[in-house]
Simulated assay, not measured.
Amino acid sequence: MFYPALAHDVSQSNAKFVEAVSGPAPIPFLYLGAKHMVTGLDHVFFLIGVVFFLRRFRDIVIYVSLFTLGHSLTLLVGVLANISVNVYLIDALIGLSVVYKAFENLGGFRKLFGSSLDMRAAVFGFGLFHGLGLATKLQALSMDDNGLLVNLISFNIGVEIGQVLVLLVVVWLLNIWRESPHFETHARYANIALMMGGFVLIGQHLAGFFAGGSA
């Protein structure tokens, strides 16, 4: 069974609403975008991994902006140019992004290879995958061409609002947690748990793919 939050899917009620819309509807699509981000554990897990060890506001802005640019590009271009991929495989790749970031936080790549990729490039690249996943989900719905661009931009802005809300909570909690004398030890276990969560997401989506999912 695939739960909506885990599969980062669009609920049936929201899908029916989207399919019934004719013309620009910025406010409802703004809400749907924000809801989609806040309830999508794959995006939330990845964002937690990205900001986990970032202490300076400037660094948080840079990394989140790169992620935002990446998924905004593929969300808009994907839908407007009708570019989509298998929904299960792209969601498995999004799960992989969670595993990658958690493993990097644990110093895994430096221990194995002596260095790691430029995380700014990696975050931007995974942002592209996240946006393509969103675009693929939206294309599965029968969206009216009338007002499509306005609705897409509104959905994307909603995603960014949801992202900011998630980050405000996550960064606030991390700042409190860092005051603990045992933060470094706990951080290791937290990133191991984050990596395991990514593997669960990968397993679920690959199971859906091999079970015959062709969407």
Rank of each mutant, 00 (worst) to 15 (best):
F67P: 00
K101H: 07
L41E: 02
A215C: 05
L165W: 10
F67W: 02
L206E: 04
V85H: 05
G213S: 07
A193L: 14
M143W: 13
F124Q: 01
V123C: 05
T39R: 04
V200H: 01
I48P: 00
V85C: 05
L165Q: 09
L117T: 12
H36T: 11
S116Q: 13
T68C: 00
A121V: 14
G158Y: 03
I60A: 03
G107S: 10
F113S: 05
W172N: 01
F209N: 03
I62K: 00
G213C: 06
S84G: 11
G208H: 13
H182I: 11
L32I: 14
I192F: 09
A92H: 11
H71I: 07
T74Y: 08
V38E: 04
E179Q: 15
F129K: 01
L148Q: 11
S65I: 07
M37R: 10
L174Q: 00
G49V: 05
I192V: 15
V50Q: 00
Q163K: 10
F17R: 08
G147M: 12
M196Q: 07
A140W: 09
V61D: 00
I83V: 15
A193Y: 09
L47F: 07
M195A: 14
A81T: 11
G203S: 12
A92M: 08
L93Y: 06
G49S: 03
P24W: 10
S13Q: 13
D9T: 15
W172S: 03
Q163H: 11
A102P: 04
